[in-house]
Each structure stands twice: as structure tokens, then as C-alpha cells.
């Protein structure tokens, strides 16, 4: 039995027919063509599917689409685009914080959620917040540096220790 849900994704309203056992990640990727959020592990270990739902970072691979009804969602596509990069995206480019790129959408969305909660995190707070986002190229140092680069100068710390 399919049901109708309404979502606002990156500011755009959508109305969709979904099944009760549909996962939000698959609805975003396959129905709305928002392929930024990635299917990594599917069991809440890797953070590649991280999105912001009603202001909170959550894992879309463990969220039922029906329970996202009436929610506001931000995916990495909502941060910025090629012509108008979000400061985090710009900093990731400048710091070379992307290797294979698979973890990058989750990293960016988690970093956005962190900065929404805490505009001036310390290096330790950045590392703590991103601890559920795995980068198998192990580019953590440049990722942390990129997040730090977007902070206001007063809060900037020296480059993270390796």
C-alpha cells in the first residue's frame, strides 16, 4: 500500500507516493535524482548518507520515508552549486579535502550541521562531530583543515596535527 508524503527538500516542495518500507535515502536518490547523499554501509557506520532533517543531522539510510512526511530536508545539493559554492565547499576545494569524493557529501552536510549548532568549533569539536563520517582515503587532516578555514579568524587554530 503506497502513501503520499510531502517533503521540502533544499527549499523545493515535493509530493510523492512511497511504500512504508522505503528508505529516505533511496527516495532522495532514485525518485528526486538527488544523488549527493551516498549509500555506503547501510547500517549507520559510515555517515555517507548524512542529511539535515528538521535542523538535525540524521542518517537517511536508517530513516523511513513515511516518517519524513512534512519534514524539511537539506542535502549536499542544497548547500550550493558550481556557480555559487557554499563556503565549506569552497574550502574543501582549496584544501584538497576531496580524494575519491565518496564521503564528501556526508562530510559537508555534517560540517554544515556542526556550524549551524556551533559557529566556532575547536579542532577537537570538529573531529568529535565528524567522527561518524568515515573517509577511506584517510584525508581527515585536510577535511578538518577545510572546516577550520571557514571559521571566523578569531576562532582559527593552527593547522591540525597529523
Amino acid at each position: 500500500m503506497s502513501r503520499t508524503i510531502r517533503l521540502t527538500v533544499n527549499g523545493q516542495p515535493h509530493q510523492l507516493e512511497v511504500e512504508d518500507n522505503d528508505l529516505l535515502l533511496n527516495v532522495l536518490r532514485e525518485r528526486l535524482d538527488l544523488t549527493g547523499a551516498k549509500y555506503g554501509c547501510g547500517i549507520g557506520e559510515c555517515g555517507a548518507c548524512t542529511i539535515i532533517m528538521n535542523g538535525k543531522a540524521v542518517l537517511s539510510c536508517l530513516t523511513l520515508a513515511v516518517l519524513a512526511d512534512r519534514s524539511e530536508i537539506t542535502t549536499v545539493e542544497g548547500l550550493g552549486d558550481y556557480r555559487n559554492l557554499h563556503p565549506l565547499q569552497q574550502a574543501f576545494l582549496e584544501e584538497g579535502a576531496v580524494q575519491c569524493g565518496f564521503c564528501t557529501p556526508g562530510m559537508l552536510v555534517s560540517a554544515k550541521a556542526l556550524l549551524d549548532e556551533n559557529p566556532n568549533p575547536s579542532e577537537e569539536e570538529i573531529r568529535q562531530y565528524l567522527r561518524g563520517n568515515l573517509c577511506r582515503c584517510t584525508g581527515y587532516t585536510s577535511i578538518v583543515r577545510a572546516v577550520q578555514k571557514t571559521l571566523k579568524p578569531a576562532a582559527k587554530e593552527s593547522h591540525p596535527k597529523i
Binding site: 500500500m1 511504500e19 512504508d20 518500507n21 522505503d22 528508505l23 533511496n26 549509500y39 554501509c41 547501510g42 547500517i43 539510510c61 523511513l64 513515511v66 516518517l67
Partner: peptide
Amino acid sequence: VDSKILPFRFRCLEP
């Protein structure tokens, strides 16, 4: 196991 999907149909009630 395919961790991408929930492999069974179920009804989700939302009191």
C-alpha cells in the same frame, strides 16, 4: 544481506 533496502513489506502506524 542487502543493507540498501528493507527487504520486507510492513505497515508503519504513526499514533
